[in-house]
Design a protein around this nucleic acid. Structure first.
Lengths: 331, 331
DNA sequence: ACGCGGTCTGCACGGCTGTGCAGGAAATGG
DNA sequence: CCATTTCCTGCACAGCCGTGCAGACCGCGT
């Protein structure tokens, strides 16, 4: 008896349950007087429409799954926040599936979403197995993938290739010829794409590029990668880091462990433009990505898919913009 | 026809719908042979129990609301992530309500949660109005509040007062007598508590404390507060910052704008021990808070409340531990 | 006064599920 | 081989809600 049902409201208001239902249904036809009575009774009893029952009827809820591993880290934190905000504003209910790396955890989460008749799933990271896409497709779950070129889903892509090319060209134009790139072993698609595009551009211009990888794509990995680059071999004078966290780690090692200065000895460009990039200690030149813009595109895709379920897969693009700061000043 | 119903599975398996239902209900009595038939048919059709309908019957869903403003920032990001992970592991479904500051936004979110018969709400931040607690109580929504002393809800508290006292004592014992504290105007309860406890302890020992506040409790506010402290008046030689982000901003200003060194000229202690505190550029001495431990306590409270709805409000405490790094080395 | 059109309203049904209850089949004991 | 118990199963109901449909009621024009 914790919750009030429409029946009780109807009784108190002296109308039928249908009238109550119609009062709370957008676009239904109720006489203003009846509506008033119902609203008053509802207020008095503390009635709230049972969205679960509504969902049963519609065979769909307003739940939207947001799947991310490590949603607390770096740019992904900002993306997650922007996305949940955009979803709420749209009237959807974001479910944050903070899944570990395990495939089975992910699958369990997906079953939950299907069980709750979620209207869609947005994937921010990780590399879901093929079975994931298959299951989603089979249950008519619209899928939006961010930062990953997945042909079986709508997707939002950052211009990783274009940006990375721009970075390489900028280094070369500034007379930096001992190039390096720091990526990650746990190559998420975006990270790998950035690394590869940088390599390709540099090679096309006839330059060698040293590469280093940390285990992950976080600060510690940047530290390890930079140590590897500077401990032996020819020291680079320009490093492209696949994301900002890697760049912070690298910058700290370069300055504090090797006594070099940035940007005089080594220029750095990062990716994402997380707020830390503007901190006084770093002043990182980096590609700005707007989490709100990306979230907005994702929501657009959701809307479109919902209106037109059988349309071919769409792809939205967002172009990162190079923000010059101290680690590689504007030429 | 997007989803398969139990009826269809029953038909294919040649049993009644009840048998299907029982197969997917924990602890129901089904013959192994029947169970097999049902599972096979379900697999073939791609059946998933409709959790919405289940929820209608039980008058409760497994949804848990997680309310936070700016869940992408600092310690809160880690707490949010830990909490969602813990909830998922528990079998609950975390809904991330990334609410703006507006009261009405928060209320709308709460209605959503009630409408979906969420089993509980966890509040990570913000200062919900009284009506919020009232509404929750009225609908039997268990409430867990983190880092805020709210008598109308179960709560998880960090030992803000104890820790802040420890900070003041440590500074004084180390011979630092020109104390300062950096807090925030948008005083969330934890921040205010830390600031006040530090002040009280210092005063009790007979020391004056200069105070400075930024607009918020982030990096930029730390920058502004530190500028205010060092631009005029007697310069402090020890600053307690109500969280790590404030400390980073302060440290950068102290070093780079005023050319002072940390910890020789100014010692710093922060709060939270976010990963950035261990970065080479900072090496911040700070109070470690374990997001996983806090999340675990919150889940404990949920479990307890669910088993025993009428128990008096409970309170779990987590004690932060001072981690010594370079900004204030172990004496 | 009467017919007519339009607006509301209530009934009943449909959408899925869990479960008490009674009955049937199988197993077990004598 | 029969009686009794045990274990399953199917029926029917309950839990909420939205909505098509038909009927009631009101207002209005003639």
């Amino acid at each position: 008896m914790r919750f009030v049902s429409a029946e009780q409201v109807a009784q108190l208001a002296g109308v039928s349950r249908s009238a109550v239902s119609r009062t709370f249904t957008e676009g239904a036809s109720v006489a203003p007087a009846t509506r008033e009575k119902v609203l008053k009774a509802a207020e008095e009893l503390g009635y709230h429409v049972n969205d679960l029952a509504r969902g049963v009827l519609a065979n769909q809820s307003r739940l939207v799954g947001v799947v991310a591993t490590k949603p607390e880290i770096g740019f992904r934190a900002h993306l997650t926040a922007a996305l949940t905000k955009a979803l709420i504003r749209r009237g959807s209910i974001p479910i944050l599936i903070n899944t570990g790396e395990t495939e089975e955890e992910l699958l369990a989460a997906q079953k939950m979403l299907i069980g709750h008749r979620a209207e869609a799933t947005v994937i921010l990271s990780g590399s879901p197995p093929a079975s994931f896409f298959e299951l989603a497709q089979r249950n008519g779950q619209p899928l939006v993938v961010i930062g990953r070129s997945e042909p079986d889903a709508d997707r939002v892509l950052a211009g990783n290739a274009e940006a990375s090319k721009e970075a390489a060209d900028a280094f070369i134009a500034a007379g930096r010829h001992r190039l390096a790139v720091i990526g990650s072993h746990s190559a998420t698609p975006s990270i790998a794409e950035r690394e590869n595009a940088f390599l390709a551009t540099a090679h096309a211009s006839g330059f060698e590029v040293r590469t280093a990888h940390g285990r992950d794509s976080d600060y510690d990995s940047g530290v390890i990668a930079a140590r590897a680059l500077f401990a032996e071999g020819e020291r680079p004078d320009a490093i492209f880091c696949a994301n900002d966290l890697l760049a912070f780690g690298a910058m700290d090692v370069i300055r504090q462990e090797f006594g070099l200065s940035v940007p005089e000895n080594v220029a750095l460009i990062g990716f994402d433009d997380v707020p830390e990039a503007a901190w006084l200690s770093y002043g990182l030149t980096t590609f700005h990505q707007d989490p709100e813009a990306i979230a907005a595109r994702a929501v657009t895709l959701l809307d479109r898919r919902q209106q037109n379920p059988d349309e071919p897969r769409a792809c939205e693009r967002v172009i990162p913009r190079l923000v010059y700061r101290n680690s590689f000043p504007r030429p």
